[in-house]
Write a protein that binds this DNA or RNA. Sequence first.
DNA 1: TTATGTGCAAAGAGTTTGCCAGCTA
DNA 2: TAGCTGGCAAACTCTTTGCACATAA
Lengths: 149, 149
Amino acid sequence: MQSRIEQICSDKGLKMTDQRRIIAQVLSGSVDHPDVDLVYRRATELDPKISIATVYRTLRLFEEANILEKHDFGDGRARYEEASGDHHDHLINIKNGEVIEFYNRELEAMKKQIAKDLGFELVDHRLELYATPSVSKEASDEDDESFQK
Amino acid sequence: MQSRIEQICSDKGLKMTDQRRIIAQVLSGSVDHPDVDLVYRRATELDPKISIATVYRTLRLFEEANILEKHDFGDGRARYEEASGDHHDHLINIKNGEVIEFYNRELEAMKKQIAKDLGFELVDHRLELYATPSVSKEASDEDDESFQK
DNA sequence: TTATGTGCAAAGAGTTTGCCAGCTA
DNA sequence: TAGCTGGCAAACTCTTTGCACATAA
């Protein structure tokens, strides 16, 4: 049986190689928003000889085919998630880099209206909320220094 | 006479060198959102021997002193504008890269509420609308809360 | 005078690409 | 088989940094 991503690839006439299959599998199995290096590391667990260049090329290919969405959360590297079709925004927990997805219909309508009022037609948009957990968790304050907004 | 930026620098005990004065002047005189290279080019018109490293260092210094705001509109380079104190969002005209600032009170309140509902406290946020000019461009500056600065 | 700032070039981080062997359709 | 694809390393873009000299306060 073919995965959704494999299906799309064959629909678009793309060759389905082992590497592409692996990268597709990594993304389908990721609930977080991995960056390129993380995708690479997960892919090499399945095939140790896959190259970082292939990961970059495949991610770009998938993004152009609307299989993946590329995000930039301001830390200088691209992060990916499987395109779900429905739009959503992101809240980034600045304590640990965790990304939470949310959707608010009223907010979406407002974006469109604002663009219209300014004399534009909305093509794309992005909203990111950078926030800290409300409940004070002093112990975890220093937890993760690896994520810098 | 001292510019606003020079005033802030001396308040913070920073040395006011010719280079910093020039870079401050370039930013004060920019109504757009120049990237580093553009700031550099505008600065070299005033002093041809200024270095790109100084531009990077000074922009970072000014940003850390809250004199400037740094933005990332998704094209891989940082863009700057003089900090105005009041928050606003950006609409990017994808036809020509022009950036329009806007503010909508209702929208700001909604951002805060959404973070709160998710159990977070909003620290920072950014909203960018990527849009194309409407075909029929009737001026619609009615009494909604969106305004162009 | 002396802590800071500057210019230059080299180094870094993330990403892309040229070349050619290898594999898919 | 004919092209497209992948691996490798080199190249690129944007940004930062080490070092020696210059300079604001």
